[in-house]
């Protein structure tokens, strides 16, 4: 049977892609962030996952406002990165696993999550950069992938409680798959940041610390926040922490914290990185 080995949660700021393209990993501004991945690499080397299920939000590469799914699951043999408007070099295509994808889709819908299925799906920086950061030396991403996109662009967004329940259903979907695969679940985005309006540049260190703490031992505490609460406390784009909550919920009950890094700022964002291992 498939087994969820743990979760990796991380920020996904586009500027990371720019820093990688320019080789700025050891630049004084970037070093605290890139060094924050060492602990993730040690864990990946030890656990060697076969599949990454990536919970992220699309920023207007695949989805426009004409048709915007709340939850969308990829079911393609391959996922391609493309120009998001900044002309950055694109990353090589990502291998899918259509058999696993369709199993997850069947399971989720049976579990009353009526997701959108995508047999073609372009993947943006929120999907590609975390995978590149996890395996920086691999030419192409070495694991199979299943993209799971959550709407954080156009309100109403799914509530933290809904995301938690969706994450639980994702966990059941993955672990009921009958092939022996080791699966890591990613939650990307956050932590606190706001790009728009006179409040641009808003960061909330105390709230981020609380979120990271609760994510480990008491994720249900985060389900008591509303989306407006998250906008107020974490910023308009800080709401992306719902992707972290979804990924965490897929792990189930007890987890152990393997690694944590927090750094202010990268670009406009308070960056967080965590590795949570599933209880055996």
């Amino acid at each position: 049977m498939a087994k969820i080995i743990g979760a990796v949660t991380t920020s996904h700021v586009p500027a990371i892609g720019n820093a990688i393209a320019k080789g700025l990993q050891n630049d004084p501004y970037w070093r605290p962030f890139f060094k924050g991945w060492d602990g993730v690499h040690v864990w990946l080397e030890k656990t060697k996952p076969d599949v990454a299920v990536v919970v992220y939000n699309d920023h207007g590469l695949q989805f426009f406002l004409d048709k915007l799914p709340t939850f969308a699951v990829g079911a393609a043999p391959e996922y391609r990165n493309a120009d998001e408007g900044w002309g950055l070099p694109t990353l090589p295509p990502y291998r899918g696993n259509t058999d696993l994808s369709w199993h997850m889709i069947e399971s989720l819908v049976a579990d009353e999550f009526d997701i959108t299925t995508c047999q073609e799906m372009a993947v943006d920086h929120a999907f590609t950069l975390p995978l590149k950061l996890m395996w920086p030396n691999a030419e192409a991403c070495p694991v199979m992938t299943v993209p799971v996109a959550v709407n954080t662009v156009q309100h109403p967004l799914p509530t933290p409680l809904r995301c938690y329940k969706f994450g639980r259903a994702l966990g059941r979907a993955i672990e009921s798959y009958d092939k022996d695969l080791k699966v890591v679940v990613l939650g990307t985005g956050g932590l606190s940041h706001q790009l728009d309006g006179p409040r641009a540049g808003f960061i909330n260190k105390a709230f981020d610390a609380m979120c990271m703490e609760k994510l480990v031992g008491d994720p249900e505490a985060l389900t008591r926040y509303s989306i407006d609460d998250l906008v107020e406390q974490a910023g308009t784009q800080g709401v992306e922490v719902i992707n972290w909550l979804t990924a965490r919920a897929a792990l189930g009950g007890r987890v152990s914290e393997v690694h944590r890094n927090y750094h202010i700022p990268i670009s406009n964002t308070a960056s967080g990185i965590m590795v949570l291992a599933n209880a055996a």
């Binding site: 426009f64 406002l65 109403p156 906008v231 107020e232």
Partner: peptide, 28 residues
């Protein structure tokens, strides 16, 4: 909720800004 310095991108904004956002989407 009214949050200072913040415009939540909801159905009101999404309708108002549709043409503008569609143009910007084309810049991919």
């Amino acid at each position: 909720r009214d949050i200072s310095g913040t415009t939540i991108f909801d159905g009101v904004q999404a309708q108002k800004g549709y043409a503008l956002n569609k143009m910007c989407y084309s810049f991919n």
